[in-house]
């Protein structure tokens, strides 16, 4: 079956690249947030719930206020509130952060579905985009290279986070809490407070990532919006070895995998659409198996994490 467009198979490549930039944004924000949280020594599995909650609240606020950016901000605030809940509860003695994360995952999605019911029908204003493809006459290239403003923010945030972890007092304190809690205590820092604040900051980013889903791509609010992207982003952090720059590239890879199905469909290959749709999940599995080992712990893992102990 020949491709039905004038760009031929290149259309698929361009669509995947453009799709990668578009679809990767939630992965990027969630993984950067989770990297920060895990650097402090906690795992927040609840970010899937935070993502959905962010998507719902952003959509609702953007619809009611007319400002998509206010929606983004409220989504971040909702995420930070979930982070505060996770961090605060996990700081209590004998509370496991993994279990709290799962509880908040369920609470976040459930709450978002409940509160979001009235917003499934209305149409909210969307976030603006940057037209990187304006030079081209081809409408396909132009469409593929419409890059969302949030993606640009995320791309700037990744190196900024890496710099901050190495060059600021807060960065050093967060890494100390994540790598040697006793050392942080000996320095007079409250490990619980450092981790709670890191979890809040991570939740803020995940909430912002959620706003992208409802305000840009796909750009509506419904209950199947995230389909596990928040969970995959957490797995992605492991593969990125807790490095924000790696998070950026791995997010693009995941975004590309997610964009594969629609890209093939655009050139007329629709037969196995749902099979290609499973690509990011298969990729998650493959990457996790490839980066795991029964013999030794992961290099680069913060040593205070419950999963690396």
């Amino acid at each position: 079956m020949p491709p039905a467009t004038d760009l031929g198979w290149w259309g698929v490549v361009i669509a995947v690249l453009g799709g990668a930039a578009r679809v990767s944004t939630p992965y990027l924000f969630v993984s950067l947030g989770e990297t920060l949280t895990e650097k402090s020594g906690r795992v927040n599995l609840g970010l899937e719930g935070t993502l959905v909650m962010g998507a719902m609240s952003a959509y609702a606020v953007a619809y009611l206020s007319g400002s998509p950016w206010l929606g983004v901000l409220v989504a971040g605030a909702a995420g930070a509130a979930f982070g505060l809940l996770h961090g605060g509860v996990s700081t209590l003695p004998r509370v496991n952060d993994i279990a709290v994360g799962i509880a908040l995952f369920l609470l976040g999605t459930g709450l978002a579905f409940y509160l979001g019911k009235p917003f499934i029908e209305p149409v909210a204003p969307r976030l603006p985009h940057v037209a990187l493809g304006a030079w081209s006459a081809s409408p396909q290239i132009r469409a593929a290279l419409e890059v969302n403003a949030l993606f640009v923010v995320g791309a700037v945030l990744a190196p900024l986070l890496l710099w901050g972890l190495g060059h600021t007092r807060w960065g050093l304190v967060v890494r100390t809490a994540g790598d040697n809690a006793d050392a942080a205590k000996a320095l007079g820092y409250s490990v619980g407070a450092v981790r709670t604040l890191s979890t809040m900051a991570g939740g803020f980013l995940a909430g912002v990532g959620g706003s992208f889903l409802s305000l840009y791509y796909p750009g509506t609010w419904n209950e199947g919006l995230s389909s596990g992207q928040g969970l995959m982003a957490i797995a992605l952090v492991i593969f990125a070895r807790w490095n924000p720059i790696h998070c950026f590239w791995v997010s693009l890879l995941f975004g590309g995998a997610t964009a594969l199905g629609p890209a093939l469909q655009s050139v007329g290959i629709a037969s196995n659409y749902y099979l290609y749709g499973a690509a990011p999940y298969v990729l998650t599995l493959i990457l996790l198996i490839a980066s795991s080992s029964p013999r030794h712990a992961l290099a680069g893992a913060p040593s205070e994490l419950t999963i690396s102990k």
Partner: peptide
């Protein structure tokens, strides 16, 4: 040891300073 293993010697030295600036 109360050192942070993943950090460098320099990072470990400045870590405890009372007046560690916000940006190092």
């Amino acid at each position: 040891f109360t050192l942070v293993p993943s950090m460098t010697v320099a990072e470990n030295l400045v870590l405890g300073a009372e007046d560690l600036p916000a940006v190092i």
